[in-house]
């Protein structure tokens, strides 16, 4: 009986935890990136993919051994970014930037962009919304 009760309790808790069900996710960053692997890179934009559902910005950055590595950074949808004031020309190839986020679980040179800073001015373009407004 105890097992049954535990199972029931676990289910009841899960039921509460997905109370957000209707608004849960249109994608799954949690399945893609690892919060325990934060990363911050200073680099130069090499390419912008302004595509739905997610924009991708690629930067060249130097790793610890001095080797230049091209990193792919995932952002929200261009549709949303435009409504937040971005344009597709905001970060052109050659722009010096600092990106912060979490590394991909699959170990590739991929990360999600939590904040993007223009190194020329120090302006934070868009930051982690749950940690307060930026802009």
């Amino acid at each position: 009986m105890n097992v049954m009760r535990m199972l029931f309790a676990a289910f009841a808790l899960a039921a509460l935890m997905f109370a957000a069900a209707p608004g849960y996710a249109h994608h799954s960053f949690a399945a893609e990136f690892d919060a325990d692997k934060p990363i911050k890179l200073v680099g130069t934009v090499t390419k912008v993919e302004w595509t739905n559902p997610h924009a991708w910005i690629y930067i060249d950055a130097m790793d610890e051994s001095g080797k230049i590595v091209n990193w792919a950074w995932e952002l929200g949808s261009p549709t949303s970014l435009v409504r937040l004031g971005w344009t597709r020309n905001l970060l052109k190839a050659g722009t010096s930037v600092t990106f912060e986020g979490s590394r991909a679980r699959d170990g590739t040179s991929t990360a999600n962009a939590r904040s993007v800073t223009l190194n020329s001015t120090g302006q934070k373009l868009l930051g982690a919304s749950s940690q307060g407004k930026t802009q």
Binding site: E74, A128, S130
Partner: peptide, 22 residues
Amino acid sequence: RLAEGASFNTAGDDPGELAAVI
């Protein structure tokens, strides 16, 4: 204290923030 959610704080991916801007 609310824990971080599935959008992982990705720039441009918080509907709540977007709704506020709109």
